[in-house]
Design a protein around this nucleic acid. Structure first.
Lengths: 198, 198
DNA sequence: GTCTATAGGACGATAGAC
DNA sequence: GTCTATCGTCCTATAGAC
């Protein structure tokens, strides 16, 4: 991908985080990227093309920073890694907030735009799989289906808490605390036997 | 509220469920309600007014059917009532799906429209409180703050599962099963002592 | 590849009659 | 209260020069 395309996609991520998917105006994106409107159409054909590539970019970036939980902080136990991988997405850092907001928008938009559903389901599945892997290392006695179910719950809860935070119904601290406790509850539930093969 | 106003608000709920808050066009709403565009402006002043009253209506309707969990089915134990109150929102019945969709849209829109936040936070709080009350009856030994935390998690999870369902990342059956297990996990977590005063 | 300029349409909102 | 007709703006997308 050319530098320009990448610049525009990054700019689109910022605009979506600021205005939402359905608030994205091609003109505003052009201003944000410092290019003309028509250049955007040259590269992306139409508004849907912008969205498609941007949402792909967001999915990949989210993957990247959950899939590399501890480049700087290796040697942690699996429980800590799991907690960090999830709590990473509840932070007030600009890039994280941008990603969370844009991801939430992707999710909400897909309810009405079926063209986004496949990408979204794929990205969701890969994320759930990632978390299920961490759960497997945290609780090796559990079964894969049980880990998948726990991962689905924890990631869905994270999305729910995230949008409550971003929409002003919940403080960031509360959201983080609630998610931490949910991890405890899931692990206890697994240890209590719901993760064994039966 | 006059009949006409009510009709229009109901029509708006249907349009929002079909197109989203940001996909709602005043012209389409007029057609759906079988009235002229200008009549809508006569009653609601502007587009924001339509949204405000419609979202209020949605909040009230949601309240109504979670606050009356068992008119037809009384005498159930609290655990069943709790489960029913939550699972009620994961159904493929037209009105429920409409409400879930519109509620999700309200949530997603509030990320970018601060004018919706107060109403939303209020409605969320009242819902969480409702569920916390049911948790209290299910597990009387627990503390109120612990019930509030569990209720916040269960309702946030429900929102997360609901949007995954509506956006095609999760089947309805799976969503219902995952929520049911989450209730089990929360109750086990509470019984394990995290709900006691300490 | 990138720009300026603008066509063309959709949409929110209002005017004014009944 | 309700309608028909329409204004003005904003926005997507394209034409055409460089």
């Amino acid at each position: 991908m050319s530098d320009r395309r990448t610049e525009i996609v990054r700019a689109a991520t910022r605009v979506i985080a600021r205005r939402g998917v359905r608030g994205l105006r091609v003109g505003e994106l052009a201003a944000e990227a410092g290019v003309s409107t028509s250049l955007i159409y040259y590269h992306f054909t139409d508004r849907a093309g912008i969205l498609r590539e941007t949402l792909e970019f967001i999915g990949e970036r989210a993957d990247r920073y959950t899939a590399e939980p501890d480049r700087e902080n290796p040697g942690n136990d699996p429980r800590t890694e799991l907690e960090q991988a999830l709590l990473l997405e509840l932070q007030d850092a600009a890039e994280v907030r941008e990603n969370s907001t844009a991801w939430g928008e992707l999710r909400a938009s897909a309810v009405f735009e079926s063209s986004l559903r496949d990408d979204l389901a794929r990205a969701t599945h890969s994320w759930v799989h990632e978390i299920a892997g961490l759960l497997g290392r945290t609780h090796p006695a559990g079964t894969a289906p049980a880990h998948a179910a726990s991962a689905e719950r924890l990631t869905a809860l994270l999305e729910g808490l995230s949008v409550r935070w971003l929409s002003g119904s919940l403080s960031l601290d509360q959201a983080r605390r609630l998610l931490g406790e949910a991890i405890d509850a899931e692990l206890a539930y697994a240890r209590a036997g719901h993760g064994r093969s039966d």
